[in-house]
Write a protein that binds this DNA or RNA. Structure first.
Length: 149
DNA sequence: GCCAACGTTGGC
DNA sequence: GCCAACGTTGGC
């Protein structure tokens, strides 16, 4: 099993939104490295749901991959913000897994993550890291879950 | 709102 | 294939 962290701006889609909707297609990721991670996600993988671009940034809850990635429908929609003219039905560029609500977590702020020596090397904390999808080791995942208790 | 860091684009 | 210009991300 793999462990992931996905970022979302709470003003766009928050963990409370996921809690309400139960499941959602993770659409709109337009970065190749993040895309590769999305395609690697398998049903049952654990996903930390991170709120970015807010004050304070934090890990808000726990999600789970409910369905492996298929083509991101928003890339085909001419009127969508994430339309990509390079994509075809035969050769889609972008992929979306389905993410489901698992359980609420006590918030773990970015500051707490930074102050935790056990999380040294976490890719989210690397300088200049802007990826919206990160892969975590099981050890780092469990440390963050512990911080949320 | 600022700006550092990074990714992408496109001219050459 | 280089690299300058531009756009975006996201913490602060």
């Amino acid at each position: 099993m793999n462990y992931w962290l996905v970022k979302s701006e709470p003003s766009e889609f928050s963990f409370a939104d996921l809690t309400r909707e139960k499941r959602t297609l993770w659409t709109g990721v337009r970065n190749f490295q993040a895309r590769n991670f999305l395609r690697e996600m398998a049903q049952g993988d654990q996903v930390l749901f991170y709120h970015s671009n807010c004050n304070p940034p934090l890990v808000a809850g726990l999600a789970v991959v409910t369905k492996a990635a298929g083509p991101d429908p928003s890339q085909f929609d001419r009127n969508a913000k994430y339309y990509d003219s390079r994509s075809t039905e035969e050769k889609p560029l972008w992929f979306s897994p389905e993410i489901g609500y698992q359980r609420a977590l006590k918030n773990v702020t970015l500051e707490q993550l930074k102050n935790c020596t056990a999380l040294k090397g976490l890719s989210l904390l690397q300088k200049g890291s802007r990826l919206s999808v990160h892969k975590l080791s099981q050890e780092h995942f469990e440390v963050i879950i512990k911080l949320a208790k």
